Simulated assay, not measured.
Amino acid sequence: MKRFGHYLGNIAGAVLALVMYSELEVLYFRPQRFDLAQYRVFVTALATVIVLFAISYIYRRQLKEENDWGFDETPHWDWRRIGIAMIGFVLIVVGSIVMLNLVGGGVSKNQESLNKIAEYNAGLFRILVVFIAPFCEEHIFRGMFFNIFFTKKNTRNKWLGIVASGFLFGYMHDPALSKYILVYWVLGMVLAWVYMSTKDLRYSILVHMCYNALGFI
């Protein structure tokens, strides 16, 4: 019974994190939904700090309860894991190019929507896409995901978790299940591989940020 409660608690934490992130996206992408007037910048900044802190807190609290993999242990930075992150960045770039060619090019509906938002809200759009989205998505789709479904350290869980995490990431970016979900799936698996190889979200967040930043170069 205790184990079941622990499981439900972690799921509730992940759902709460996803809801907070979704609402923060609305604040950045569609601020007209909120009557903020001259307080818009202050409210947006305050909400961002609160949401990022809350999501990080939920993840770290989960690790304190159970952490068979040894996630987030010190020291956080070393050359081996930096090298893994660099390999991950190359893999995610090559993987996206290959998969886009395989599905026939073009852009997904999710990307079309983002492109339209960028036309009217370029500044906030870049901040969210390059910095905030990678932070939140890596905590939810990598960190919390493994804390819930693949807590036991073994080779099977590692690779099943990488594939499943990638699919969840793909589905959340393409819920219509179009051909483009394959592209997002591969991207998600690379990020999950970086996380599982380094045992530290800092590296998958960094790779995710660098990849998203490529769209603005």
Rank of each mutant, 00 (worst) to 15 (best):
Met20Gln: 11
Ala192Asn: 00
Val90Met: 12
Tyr21Glu: 02
Met99Asp: 00
Glu25Trp: 06
Glu119Thr: 11
Met99Arg: 00
Lys152Phe: 04
Cys210Glu: 01
Asp78Val: 05
Tyr195Met: 08
Lys116Asn: 15
Phe42Ile: 15
Phe167Tyr: 10
Ala192Arg: 08
Ala118Pro: 00
His139Leu: 09
Phe169Val: 04
Glu138Arg: 06
Leu16His: 02
Arg142Gly: 02
Gly188Leu: 07
Tyr21Pro: 00
Pro75Cys: 13
Ile205Arg: 08
Glu73Trp: 00
Ala37Trp: 08
Ile162Phe: 07
Phe71Ser: 04
Arg30Phe: 14
Ile97Asp: 12
His208Gly: 10
His208Ala: 07
Tyr184His: 05
Val43Thr: 12
Leu160Asp: 02
Arg202Val: 04
Tyr180Asp: 03
Asn67Phe: 06
Asn212Asp: 12
Gly161Asp: 09
Trp77Gly: 10
His76Glu: 13
Val163Asn: 06
Val194Met: 04
Gly104Pro: 02
Ser178Arg: 03
Arg30Asp: 12
Asn115Ala: 14
Thr198Leu: 06
Leu52His: 02
Tyr120Arg: 11
Val15Asn: 03
Ala118Val: 04
Val41Leu: 14
Val107Arg: 10
Ser197Tyr: 00
Ala12Leu: 15
Met20Tyr: 08
Ile140Gly: 11
Met189Asn: 01
Asp78Ala: 07
Asn157Leu: 07
Leu63Ala: 04
Arg60Met: 10
Glu66Cys: 09
Arg202Gln: 02
Asn157Ile: 09
Ala122Glu: 14
Gly215Ile: 03
Ser22Arg: 12
Ile162Trp: 03
Asp78Met: 06
Thr155Trp: 12
Ile50Phe: 15
Trp193Ser: 10
Ser96Cys: 03
Tyr184Glu: 08
Gly105Leu: 06
Val194Tyr: 01
His173Lys: 09
Ala122Trp: 02
Met20Val: 06
Gly95Met: 04
Leu27Lys: 06
Phe169Gly: 02
His208Asp: 11
Leu52Phe: 05
Phe146Val: 12
Thr198Asn: 08
Phe29Ser: 14
Gly215Glu: 05
Val43Trp: 07
Arg33Phe: 14
Gly123Phe: 12
Tyr180Glu: 08
Tyr171Ser: 05
Leu124Ser: 12
Arg81Met: 06
Gly215Asp: 06
Ala176Arg: 11
Met209Leu: 15
Lys152Gln: 07
Thr44Trp: 05
Lys179Gln: 11
Phe4Pro: 02
Ala54Leu: 15
Leu46Phe: 14
Ser22Ala: 15
Glu65Met: 01
Met172Ala: 13
Leu91Phe: 12
Phe53Thr: 13
Val90Trp: 06
Ile162Lys: 08
Asn10Ser: 14
Val107Gln: 14
Tyr203Pro: 05
Val51His: 07
Glu137Ser: 07
Phe141Met: 13
Val90Glu: 02
Gly9Trp: 12
Phe4Tyr: 15
Tyr21Arg: 01
Val190Arg: 03
Lys109Asp: 15
Asn154Pro: 10
Phe29Asp: 13
Ser165Tyr: 05
Leu114Thr: 01
Gly9Ala: 09
Ser22Glu: 09
Val93Ala: 07
Val19Ala: 15
Ile148Asp: 05
Thr48Ala: 07
Leu8Pro: 02
Thr155Ala: 14
Asp78Glu: 14
Arg80Pro: 00
Val41Ile: 13
Trp69Tyr: 10
Asn147Trp: 00
Val15Gly: 04
